[in-house]
Every structure is written in C-alpha cells, then in structure tokens.
C-alpha cells in the first residue's frame, strides 16, 4: 500500500525538523571572551592595589582624591573599552549589564571620594567599598570561568 502524498510530505517535514532540531547545539549565551577576562583581571588587580594601599597607609596624602584621579581614569578607560567590545558580541546581555554596573560603581566611588572634605576615604568607607568591589569582581569571574569551562567542554 502506498502512503498518501500529504502523509509522506508531513513525515518528511517531521523528520527534517527533528534533524534540524537535534543537529544543532542549543546556545543561550555568548562564547567565552579572553580579552574581557584579561581586562577584568587588570581592573581587579588595580582595584585591589588601591584598597591595599588604603589599608596599609590610612590617611596618607598619596591616597587623596587628587592623587587618585589616574586610578579612576584608568578603570573607566578599561571598563568602557571592554564594554564597546562586548557590545559587538551576540547573546551577551548579562556581561554587558555587569560591565555597566561596574562602570557605575567606579563613578559612585569617585563621587564619594571627591566629596570627602579632606580628600581621603575613611576606614569604614574602604571596608564597605572593598567588600562591594570584591563581590562584584568575584561574581563576574564566576560567570566568566563558567563560560570558559563550557567552551572547553564543547
């Protein structure tokens, strides 16, 4: 008995759909990006150095707002450069949002520091800022490491 042409056509479409569906791997997120990883590592190192200096020499004029301007500028240049790069990567909304929040926090820390009458961050400022930035970088690296592990597994 020969199958009805419509039935044959439907079976073919179904098989093709299964083939197309199963032949491709599902990808919900962008691939791991080495440049983003390295740039964030540099930013994290620079931020950690800044807080270590504050903890080692609290009240030092070397850490006044005016003397910290190159630090803030350096972080902003890096975060905005890597943001532009990430903007060009598909399925990358999470990393873009993370970079925006990091840039915003650099600006907020800058404002806090700028507003200090003596130009110096207090011990409690440093404790709070250090905690916030450490959590932020850790979260970003956790995500980046997971993307890296995923790339290796593929």
């Amino acid at each position: 008995m020969t199958a009805h042409p419509t039935l044959r056509k439907l079976t073919g479409i179904l098989l093709l759909s299964v083939l197309l569906f199963t032949a491709c791997k599902v990808t919900l997120l962008s691939a791991y990006d080495d440049v983003t990883d390295k740039t964030l590592s540099e930013m994290q190192q620079s931020t950690t150095t800044f807080f270590v200096k504050h903890e080692a020499n609290p009240g030092s004029q070397d850490l006044s707002y005016n003397n910290s301007l190159p630090f803030y500028e350096g972080l902003r240049v890096k975060s905005r450069t890597v943001r532009i790069r990430n903007n060009a990567i598909e399925k990358n909304k999470i990393m873009i949002n993370m970079l925006d929040l990091l840039d915003e926090n650099v600006n907020l820390m800058d404002s806090l520091h700028k507003g200090k009458p003596n130009g110096l961050l207090s011990k409690s400022d440093v404790t709070l800022l250090k905690g916030a930035f450490e959590s932020q970088y850790t979260a970003m690296f956790k995500f980046i490491m997971a993307l890296k592990a995923r790339a290796k597994a593929q």
Binding site: I94, M98, L101, L129, A132, Q136, A139, K142, F143
Partner: peptide, 18 residues
C-alpha cells in the same frame, strides 16, 4: 554607599542568572 552595594548585589544576581 547603598547604591554601590545594590549594584554589587545586582552583579551577583546576574552571575547566578548566567
């Protein structure tokens, strides 16, 4: 300070989402 902490925690939530 509150805004900085909120941004930091939002980044944590984004990482969990990712």
């Amino acid at each position: 300070h509150i805004q900085i902490q909120k941004n930091s925690f939002r980044t944590v939530l984004l990482a969990i989402q990712g």
